[in-house]
Design a binder for these strands. Structure first.
Lengths: 329, 329
DNA sequence: CTGTTAGCGCCTTCAG
DNA sequence: CTGAAGGCGCTAACAG
């Protein structure tokens, strides 16, 4: 491994000049810049990130905090997409990522967590799947000691950005399309878990639609559970004209119940997960591109690390018609 | 953040002494050792891993290489367990993990990959889900420049360890139990993908059983696909007494086909994935504890990094009776 | 057993 | 615009 010194010697300049070129500083003549770059190429030189971190006291380290407590297949799918999106972007931005799980922070105080991050030279944290009951994380955010990006939780301050699609609008749109295309005056809405931030936002969307379209609206908590959705559909499904679900998983549960009851009701979902083991069903759903969301989250982290202020980032979504497929084609 | 210097001053000793205590070197009197530890506690000191890495030229960095190409829910579940197992153990062992995906190495030569690892100070790589067609990785392993642990691929050399359950034996056992409990003389075996290392091993297991029990054995390639398994079962299922599948997913496909054909055949699976969206089915399967496997893989990596030689590690498995459950309970 | 010292590879003023 | 020099926090001989 050649070092900056070798490059300097080969280019016939001082170490500091090389450093400047490497980091894109001004005040280097075009000529020497080119000479340095050439030497870099010839030696196949890559700066040692460890030395650079130590010297500059900027490691560019960001932790991805994944909520793995709710063990469900869809969540796994979503988390994997989150991971690959963030990591891919991080490689491009030369940020240093480490993956952590909520479970590792269990039973630790906000202070201990801070110490841990600090000792690991972690400067930023992207939080996925945070719930309203996660007080420790909320405190961490409140402390403003780290740059933080929260996915799907509307928390913003000077050092914290939030990133998500417009859940209210998306829920409104997908439900509207389903209702209008099929007709119907009464809606059964199966909502998400009470502690989820998005649950309330999506709820607002369906309520707006109900108001606008003068629909009668029955709301039941499905907790993002396929099973619960199924049970609730058995109980209330036949009384409704349309069933709107706050997640694809619940939509599957609802559809299965309807099949077993041998009645038809239009159903719509939310998330646009790609993998489902149920054939022959169709519905509208909100397609969230989790990979892209996570890339954007990493972008936003880059901005924060460079001194940008926290802000709210809203990404777009799509309403798509989804066809269930076999798990592996 | 206090530094080693502060600790030294506070304990009234030299920096190097503190370093020795920190790293558990000998040649420090019990007394000073205690004094240093006290200072460490009082200052709430944690050594800066970056500085330590730079100085010692040992970053303790290991990359997790996850195969995310085959996008299936079960694979996601398994990969998440791999990730959390490895990362949890790494935290305990103070190793520095970064997660990478096969897709990031696509289109790169073994040399480029080596350079990348080297530039990132990565010393070890744990490879999950490598196939026989991954020649680039095979070359990387062959080079012996990095410490490597391969999960579920039987490759071993001085710097490479392999870790897996005994697939041959496991397949033998689960099939044997299923056959003996239900009786039957002919077996339909749905095998995995041709490029998977474990496919062949599992095949050997069922072949051994067939020999021992004098079973007639029909082998069909199911490619770990639920859909294919289903189709194959439609075609060949009724002619067999028992259906043995090389994965749970295929077992599900087989069972669904049997249900639709309205005939009964005992089925068994492999992997013991916890999440399946199918209710009311039961079968024997091989339970692999992916979380634990991955922890062990990280342990093994620790051994290699400390200079141990590559070896083959075989973990135990269980044969369990599995009851399908709803996705979310 | 303990302290001194010279780096690790890079960044960053500060002179020139 | 370029180069010299002093660290960043820690490790590792080497003296004492």
């Amino acid at each position: 491994m050649s070092s900056i010194k070798d490059v300097a010697r080969r280019a016939g300049v001082a170490i500091s000049t090389v450093s400047k070129v490497l980091n894109g500083y001004p005040n280097v003549s075009e000529e020497t810049r080119e000479r340095v770059n050439e030497a870099v190429r010839e030696l196949n030189f890559t700066p040692n990130p460890i030395a650079s971190a130590l010297s500059s006291k900027k490691a560019g380290r960001v932790a991805l905090l994944i909520n793995l407590d709710t063990k469900t297949q869809t969540v796994d799918e979503i988390n994997m997409q989150y991971l690959s999106g963030a990591i891919n972007r991080a490689v491009e931005k030369r940020l240093d990522v480490r993956t952590l799980f909520f479970s590792m922070l269990r039973d630790r105080s906000a202070e201990e967590i801070e110490d841990y991050f600090r000792s690991q030279s972690i400067e930023g944290v992207i939080i996925y799947g945070m719930g309203m009951q996660d007080v420790v994380l909320q405190r961490l955010i409140g402390e403003r000691r780290f740059k933080i990006v929260v996915v799907d939780a509307p928390i913003v301050n000077e050092t914290t950005s939030s990133i998500q699609v417009n859940h209210e609008q998306a829920q409104y749109e997908v439900a509207k399309r389903t209702v209008l295309e099929n007709g119907g005056k009464s809606v059964l809405y199966l909502s998400g878990r009470a502690d989820g931030y998005v649950t309330g936002e999506r709820l607002l969307g369906i309520q707006r639609l109900a108001r606008e379209e003068k629909l009668s609206l029955l709301i039941k908590r499905g907790d993002f559970s396929e099973k619960k959705a199924r049970e609730l559909t058995f109980q209330y499904g036949s009384d409704a004209d349309v069933i709107v679900c706050a997640s694809d998983l619940m939509a599957i549960g609802a559809m299965r119940a309807l099949q077993e009851m041998d009645i038809f009701r239009p159903v719509c979902g939310f998330d646009g997960i790609t993998l489902m083991g149920y054939a022959g069903m169709q519905m509208y759903t909100v397609k969230q591109d989790f990979y892209r969301i996570s890339r954007k989250a990493m972008d936003e982290m880059g901005r924060l690390l460079e001194g940008g202020a926290g802000r709210r980032v809203v990404l777009d979504h799509q309403i798509i018609r989804m066809q269930y497929q076999d798990v592996i084609s």
